[in-house]
Design a protein around this nucleic acid. Sequence first.
DNA 1: AGTAGATTGACAGCATACTCACAATGTGGA
DNA 2: TCCACATTGTGAGTATGCTGTCAATCTACT
Lengths: 169, 169
Amino acid sequence: MPSKPNSITMDAVYTAPGYLFRRMQQIAVAIFVEECRAFDLTPVQYAALIAIHTHPGIDATRLSAVIAFDRSTLGNVIERLEAKKLIERKPSTEDKRVKLLYLTRAGAALLRDITPSVDRAQARMLQPLKPADRKALMALLSQLVDLNNEASRVPLRAEDALEHLGKAG
Amino acid sequence: MPSKPNSITMDAVYTAPGYLFRRMQQIAVAIFVEECRAFDLTPVQYAALIAIHTHPGIDATRLSAVIAFDRSTLGNVIERLEAKKLIERKPSTEDKRVKLLYLTRAGAALLRDITPSVDRAQARMLQPLKPADRKALMALLSQLVDLNNEASRVPLRAEDALEHLGKAG
DNA sequence: AGTAGATTGACAGCATACTCACAATGTGGA
DNA sequence: TCCACATTGTGAGTATGCTGTCAATCTACT
C-alpha cells in the first residue's frame, strides 16, 4: 500500500521520536500503576517519597529540582501525600517562607513495602527486549536525557538537595 | 560519596526505566512546544491533525485508536481544534451517534506550514547522540513500544482507521 | 418484532505538567 | 538603614491522560 509522494501520512507520527517517547511513557505509567495498585501510589508520588526519604527536611523548591518536577505541580503532589499521611510539612525556624518535608512512619513503611512491586514494574517495562538490548537502550536513554537536561523546562539539579544541609537546624 | 548498604537512595529513581521515560517525554514536549510556538499547537494536537488528514471522515473513537490516545481526553483535544477552526465535526448520516472529523482549509494549511518546525523539533530531541546511536535508540524503542502495545491502557490500533471507509457516504 | 448487549460521545472527577501572577519573606548593595 | 531584587509557596488557568458513568443509538440474537 504505497503512499502518494508529497502526501503526509501517519508515518510522520509513528516513526517520530516524540511519538515513541510519549507512547513509552504511557506504557510505563500503566505498568507502574498496575503493579502498585495495592499501594495507591503514582510514579511521581513514589519519586517524591524516595527523594524526601533520601533528603529529610528538604523544601518543596529543592525537591522539585531533585526529581526534575515542576514546582507548581509538586504543590498538589505534596498536598496529596500529606493528606494520605505519608509525609509531614514543618515550618522552618530559619526562613518563614519555607516548609520542610519529612516522611511519616507510615510513609517510611510504605516505601519499604512497595519496593518489590516497583522493581517488578521497572523490570516489566523492559521485559520484551533481550537482556543485551535492555542495557543498550538504558545506556542510550541515560545519555540522551543527561545531554538534553537543559532543554526541559525543569532541568534536573541533583546537587541542589545538598544545600539545605548547611542551613537546617 | 558511598551510600549505606540497604538504604534507599535516589539511584532507585534516576536509573529506573520509568524515570528515564518520563524525563525524555518531558524534554521532548518542551522541545516540540518551543519549536512550534509560532503555531500554538501541542504534540497531541499535531498527531490528531495528521490522523484526520490521513483519514478524512474518521470518528473520534477510531481516531483515539489510531493515535493511541484516550477517548475521554481526545474529546477535549477535538473541542480545542474545533474552536481554533482547524477541524470540522459533521454528523454521520448513517449512525446518529457518530460525528465525522474533517480538516478545514486552515487546518490543512497549518499542517503544511508547521512541518519544517516539527521536523526540526524531532531532530533536536536526538541531536546530542551520534547518528549511529540515534538509529540504535529509535530501533530499540520502536521494538519495545510495539512489543508492549497491549500493556498500555489505550493500545495502538492503526488498522482501525480503515473501518470507516466501508461505511462513509 | 423486540430486547439484551455493545458502541458512541459526553460528562464528572482525579493526577500530572506546564504557564503566569501574587504576597510574604529574605538578601545584598547603595 | 533602606530599597531593589530574588526566593518561597500558593493560586488561577490550560492541556494532557486516566477512571468512571450515562443517555442515545445501533446490532445481533431470539
